[in-house]
Design a protein around this nucleic acid. Structure first.
Length: 905
DNA sequence: TTATTGCATGAACGT
DNA sequence: CGTTCATGCAATAAT
């Protein structure tokens, strides 16, 4: 029971409302109606209100037939009229205003259950045509929750309208709001209505398409017994029921994470391209299972995405009702030889028979070929919980030729209550494609990153359909076509978690590493393509004396180009013609549109036609591309490596990719210039990141230099030192015991520690900046030597003074001197430093901790005392010896508690 | 020696 | 911070 004030100003009624409304507006939003005045008002998301029983009813504008909005079960079909108001389906058909698609006919024929068509209310809903005073004929929507496991479907079928389970209603209305639940049916309004009603939508946003796609979900009915209640309809819910109720903002929640990007509403008046048409019937949309114990807690990743074709295949010619229950992407364990299929707990408890003993019970499951398999359905106690498994699945898995990444689906045949197991091969999924044009949907990309069945093909299609030409009636027809084949359909719903843990056994890779790389690359590339909006002029804001460009408008995508520098120091930008694929030289400050060809080459009249020869020699061209690839690879490598391994390559990459300094490579070949530091940094950018010289190159900074870069580095370093000292203090307090420096501990001097040495904070530009500066000072032998001497003389104890108690005393030393010395020393090659500090033994190929002197151990101890996150800080302070997890001799699996003893944290 | 079983662990995720 | 679940792994059984 809820009270809501009508948003109709002229009404203002406070209504006691019970029913959640599922009216859907043409805009894709949902409407609810006031109890009292019947006014519909639009809500931005779904209808989250309840209205009175009566308000769910409308009269057909033509015949006066009573219709229902669809939020509860009804006996009528209705449809919204373009001119506002509501019409029953028969009237609408008669008047020709509604396409009578065969699916609906077929459905109506197949089912004697009259179906409510959840109405898409026009934005201009004529509320005058709304009769809200009719009595509701349905019963109690607050009916008892059906907990009976496999029988629920059977029970449901005989449910009268009045016995519809409350949660079912919530499921339906809350999600799409357009579903009607006549005997559990999801109404088929989505496709036909959508195709008909969105004609005037000129601005087709992604969100609308999203909603529309979401509506293509197959509807399943658990309707009247004796009928094949497979409603081959593509309307229906996309997301679980209670979510809508429990979550104030569905769209910010799982919808955005698990489902399609919000696609634009299609314009049915425009014929879509054939590809899209063919694609649409295969769209998989996650659909919350309609029933089962605890189904509301079912994670969307397990929502069945079974398509109508698959259901058709499963059901065959029988009259059984297919109730998709859940699905699961097979993990390596599931598909392995062990023969244990881990069942999602919620699914197991919701859809499989309850078991009280770990031994469980045998469960007969039929596969799509009709073969029965008997698995042991059991559980293991686990963390005060249970872990459900199906044992003995190997033969079945092998029979289906499934492997990790494939998906098994579980459905139930009603009224028999038989469990049916289907599958979907991951290999049937769309292969990865680069998506240079959709990175504005960052969330989408993010979710796609974790999905092996990246539905990018279809996604791409969807975006191509942004023009609004998707024909959803096509779906209906297609959906109604039986036996189109079960497998080999592209999955269209990106879901982050579905495919996790596929791949290497312990790393729980989200996706195949190659795919991940590719996708990463795609994303990075997309980032690189971001350009400031061409028409927009940035406003310059000053932050800490640095200029930042601020744009009012979002960035746009430009054509991918490659920047090079000539040995003379000049910079070039190279773009490839879309038509002839020749590379053309452009000024560096040119921003190209996504499509560009020679004819657009206004900067080089000689080469403004495709017939003009390419300026680059084949070798140059190859170099150009090679450098671009190298850069790309470095970027991936850098992003893939853990921080402690990252730095060397990061530095290299930085050096390679950094702004063009004066000291270019002498090879004469063009080298790839910037645009890799940050997508928004372009040649000529004078920001703090870009003005720094590449490692080891460019003008040297003197210790007394007060340039912007140096001052920033100093500030940064100071902050780091302060933090470090603070942590040191905390560590000392927490660890009064002698450092865990036992025989089993080893030290390892390797490139990684070297990397850590130079790592300040690779994640932020300032950190890189500091690194670069260090490198920049690398060649300053005088400074380095001086610093080393200072260190040797004890003026600066590189190993411990950042942590020592006499830090204050050290503060007496010139801060600049101290800091710069540290920086400079830090930039020394590791071996040089070790030798200069009498740590030659550590340079040995196989360093042995036990062989080091106590004095030599000190830095190691220091290092060990640091929390892992501090290692780079410690290194920045001059420590060059670190322990690594592998150095403890344990494998990754066995190093759990043992290593903790040396961990102050 | 290999396969199976049962449980423990911890990363990922959800709240 | 709690839960889930993929996977590791030791114990046990089978070969």
């Amino acid at each position: 029971m809820a009270t809501k004030v009508c948003t109709n100003a002229s009404c203002g009624a406070t209504s006691s409302i019970k029913w959640r409304c599922g009216w859907r507006l043409r805009s894709g939003a949902f409407a609810t109606l006031c109890d009292q005045c019947g006014s519909a008002y639009e809500q931005s998301t779904f209808c989250d209100t309840y209205h009175s029983k009566e308000s769910g009813w409308r009269d057909c504008s033509s015949c006066g037939k009573r219709l229902h909005c669809g939020c509860i079960a009804s006996k009528s079909l209705l449809e919204l009229l373009d001119n506002g108001g509501i019409g029953c389906i028969s009237c609408v058909r008669r008047s020709g205003s509604t396409p009578t698609d065969e699916k609906i006919d077929g459905f109506a024929t197949r089912n004697n259950v009259t179906e409510v068509r959840s109405a898409s209310i026009d934005n201009n809903l004529d509320t005058d045509n709304v009769d809200v005073g009719r009595p509701l004929q349905s019963g109690d929507a607050e009916g008892n929750e059906q907990n009976s496991l496999l029988q629920s479907g059977r029970d449901d079928k005989n449910e009268s309208v009045g016995k519809i389970k409350r949660e079912q209603i919530v499921t339906a209305v809350g999600e799409v709001g357009s579903s009607s639940f006549s005997n559990f049916n999801h109404s088929p309004i989505g496709s036909s209505l959508f195709s008909k009603r969105c004609v005037n939508k000129e601005s087709v946003g992604a969100r609308d398409l999203y909603d529309s796609l979401a509506q293509t979900c197959l509807s399943i009915t658990l309707g009247a017994p004796g009928n094949t209640n497979l409603v081959l309809d593509h309307n229906g819910t996309i997301e679980g029921g209670e979510h809508s109720r429990a979550l104030p903002s569905l769209e910010q929640g799982q919808r955005s994470r698990h489902l399609m990007p919000k696609p634009p509403k299609m314009n049915p008046g425009i014929v879509q391209d054939a590809t899209t048409k063919e694609m649409l019937p295969q769209i998989r949309v996650a659909r919350p299972p309609v029933e089962g114990r605890g189904r509301n807690q079912l994670l969307p990743r397990y929502w069945p995405r079974i398509t109508d074709q698959e259901l058709q295949q499963i059901s065959g010619d029988s009259n059984s009702t297919i109730v998709p229950l859940f699905e699961k992407v097979l993990s390596a364990s599931d598909a392995g030889r062990i023969g244990r299929l881990v069942l999602p707990k919620a699914c197991a408890e919701a859809y499989f028979p309850p078991i009280s003993q770990p031994e469980g019970l045998p469960l007969k499951i039929q596969d799509v070929k009709g073969k029965d398999w008997v698995f042991q359905f059991r559980f293991w106690p686990n963390n005060n919980s249970r872990m459900y498994v199906l044992e003995g699945v190997t033969p079945c898995i092998q029979s289906m030729q499934l492997q990790a990444g494939d998906t098994v689906t579980f459905s139930r045949l009603d009224p028999e209550g038989k469990l049916v197991m289907g599958f979907r091969k991951a290999s049937s999924c769309a292969t990865l494609q680069k998506l240079p044009v959709i990175s504005s949907y960052s969330g989408l990309l993010q979710s796609m990153k974790g999905s092996p069945d990246l539905h990018i093909n279809a996604l791409s299609e969807s975006f191509h359909a942004v023009d609004g030409d998707l024909n959803w009636r096509r779906i209906d027809r297609h959906g109604g076509r039986p036996n189109e084949g079960l497998a080999i359909q592209p999955l269209l719903v990106p879901e982050k978690k579905r495919s996790r843990n596929i791949g290497s056994k312990s790393k729980r890779l989200l996706i195949d590493s190659e795919d991940a790389l590719e996708l990463k690359l795609t994303w990075e590339e997309a980032q690189d393509l971001l350009r400031p909006p061409p028409s927009a002029k940035p406003s310059i804001v000053m932050i800490e004396d640095h200029e930042f460009e601020e744009y009012e408008e979002p960035p746009v995508f430009g054509k991918k180009t490659i920047f090079t520098v000539r040995s003379s120091g000049g910079q070039d930008q190279w773009a490839q013609c879309d038509n002839c694929s020749k590379w053309r030289r452009l000024p560096v400050d040119v921003l190209l549109p996504p499509k560009w060809s020679c004819i657009d080459n206004a900067w080089d009249p000689k080469r403004c036609v495709c017939s003009a020869a390419e300026e680059l020699s084949p070798m140059d061209r190859e170099n150009l591309l090679k450098l671009d690839r190298d850069l790309k690879k470095r970027r991936i490598m850098a992003s893939q490596k853990p921080i402690h391994e990252l730095e060397p390559s990061g530095l290299d990459a930085l050096a390679t990719a950094a702004v063009l300094g004066e000291e270019r490579g002498d090879s004469g070949a063009a080298c790839v210039a910037t645009t890799t530091k940050h997508p928004r940094h372009r040649p000529g950018c004078t920001c703090i990141v870009c003005i720094q010289p590449p490692s080891g190159k460019g003008p040297k900074h003197k210790p007394t230099c007060t340039c912007t870069v140096c001052m920033t580095v100093k500030r940064r370093f100071k902050t780091l030192m302060m933090r470090k000292k603070k942590r040191q203090t905390e560590a000392e307090v927490a660890q009064r015991n002698p450092p865990g420096w036992g025989p089993k501990d080893e030290i390892e001097v390797d490139s990684a520690s070297r990397g850590a040495l130079l790592a300040l904070d690779s994640s932020d530009p300032e950190g890189r900046q500091a690194v670069v500066l260090e490198s920049g000072g690398h060649g300053n032998a005088v400074c380095i030597d001086k610093a080393v001497e200072m260190n040797k003389a004890g003026k600066i104890d590189l190993n411990c003074h950042p942590y020592s108690d006499d830090q204050d005393a050290q503060a007496a030393v010139s801060e600049r001197m101290s800091m710069m010395s540290l920086l400079q020393v830090a930039s020394l090659p590791l071996e040089t430093y070790l030798k200069q500090n009498g740590l030659d033994s550590l340079v040995a190929t196989e360093p042995q901790a036990s062989s080091t002197s106590q004095a030599q151990q000190q830095p190691v101890v220091e290092s060990e005392e640091k929390a892992p996150e501090d290692s780079h800080l410690a290194s920045a302070g001059g420590e060059r010896v670190t322990t690594t997890p592998t150095a403890t001799g344990g494998n990754e699996g066995s190093c759990r508690p043992d290593n903790a003893q040396t961990d102050p944290v």
